[in-house]
């Protein structure tokens, strides 16, 4: 691989262990985020997108969550091995996060300006006046006049609140921004504004971004690379154009068949059969095999390895590794 990823997740396994059973939330997940790029993490409800993001922040609730194995490499250090104290310096400062619901991720009894200032004071050695100045600058950056510094979240519309959340996340100029469905709760016209803003800020601040979403349209607009998740693992990881033009994994192909596209008039959608598997009771072998139109015998018994199609495209599917098996055995 030519470039070195900024953040590299290798064979991560995260389980939620309760007395009712073990939920395998993340299974052998591999993910690479390159400097200055946006990686789209796409998957359906329960695919483990949010757990992945929380793992990157080392914020998986423990108990019941446990990182069983794997590495999350960031600047040659493994985040899973850092102490809470070291992590606190990274969180919010070098890696920060935007949550899905702008309505609940702001504190209703603090002014928006103070909420931005709080993060700055926490991570940067600056005095109150500098922090206040920087907080009002951040408001301007996200397109909110600084006169509104002393207003409370309820005085803002949904799109404006999400801008405030973005301002908080970017206030310490993080290297990595994790955005968990940042526009799902917003209307289309507002979503366009927020996405445009994030795009511009990403360029200005040279931030790498992990964009978690279920919307392939949003990914096509803002991402450089795409990782498709299914049942806790990334099943396909590719440069955007490759993924959209030649999706390889049957699940990825299924996703594209499932969404109506305004640019094409298809009479019938081609949905993926069946339902998402129960994470407490995942199918054996490839977790997608019960729904896969191309399932083979091997799919029921063996978890597929990563097959690299080229430098920027890999897939976990036996369809593409089938030829390799002979030589290995």
């Amino acid at each position: 691989m030519s470039r070195k990823p900024l953040l590299d997740i290798k064979n991560l396994n995260v389980h939620y262990i309760t007395h009712e059973g073990t939920t395998k939330a993340i299974n052998d997940l591999n993910l690479a985020l390159y400097p200055g790029e946006t990686l789209g993490l796409v998957g359906e409800t329960g695919a483990g997108k949010t757990t992945t993001a929380l793992s990157m922040m080392q914020l998986v609730p423990d108990p019941p969550g446990k990182i069983i194995s794997g590495e999350i490499l960031y600047h040659d250090q493994d985040l899973t091995k850092l102490s809470e104290h070291e992590l606190r310096k990274i969180r919010g400062n070098q890696i920060s996060m935007i949550f899905q619901d702008p309505m609940t991720s702001l504190n209703p009894i603090m002014t928006v300006g103070d909420q931005i200032r709080e993060g700055i004071l926490l991570h940067q050695k600056v005095d109150m006046a500098t922090a206040t100045k920087r907080a009002s600058d951040m408001l301007e950056v996200v397109g909110i006049p600084m006169e509104r510094y002393n207003e409370y979240p309820h005085q803002f519309s949904g799109g404006m609140k999400q801008r405030v959340v973005i301002a908080i996340a970017l206030s310490c100029n993080p290297e990595i921004l994790i955005a968990d469905e940042p526009t799902t709760a917003l209307d289309v016209t507002i979503q366009a504004q927020v996405l445009q803003l994030m795009e511009n800020l990403k360029k200005d601040f040279n931030t790498s971004m992990l964009m978690i979403t279920h919307d392939l349209g949003v990914v096509a607009n803002v991402c450089d690379h795409v990782a498709i998740m299914y049942a806790g693992t990334v099943i396909e990881h590719a440069e955007k154009h490759m993924l959209y033009r030649t999706p390889k994994h049957p699940y990825t192909q299924g996703l594209f068949g499932s969404i109506p596209n305004v640019e094409e008039n298809v009479d019938r959608l081609k949905p993926i059969m069946g339902l998402m598997p129960d994470p407490t009771n995942l199918p054996t072998g490839c977790t997608f095999h019960p729904r896969c139109p191309h399932a083979m015998d091997i799919c029921q018994v063996e978890f597929p390895r990563i097959t690299r199609l080229n430098d920027e495209h890999w897939v976990r599917c036996h369809l593409y590794s089938a030829d390799e098996e002979v030589s290995h055995e």
């Binding site: 289309v188 016209t189 979503q191 366009a192 504004q193 996405l195 445009q196 919307d215 392939l216 349209g217 949003v218 990914v219 096509a220 607009n221 955007k240 154009h241 959209y244 033009r245 594209f256 969404i259 596209n261 305004v262 640019e263």
Partner: peptide, 17 residues
């Protein structure tokens, strides 16, 4: 125009209100 199209061959350019 703001509707994100799931295709890389059509670049949507949203009109921002």
């Amino acid at each position: 125009s703001a509707l994100p199209v799931p295709s890389v061959d059509i670049e949507t350019r949203p009109i921002l209100l």
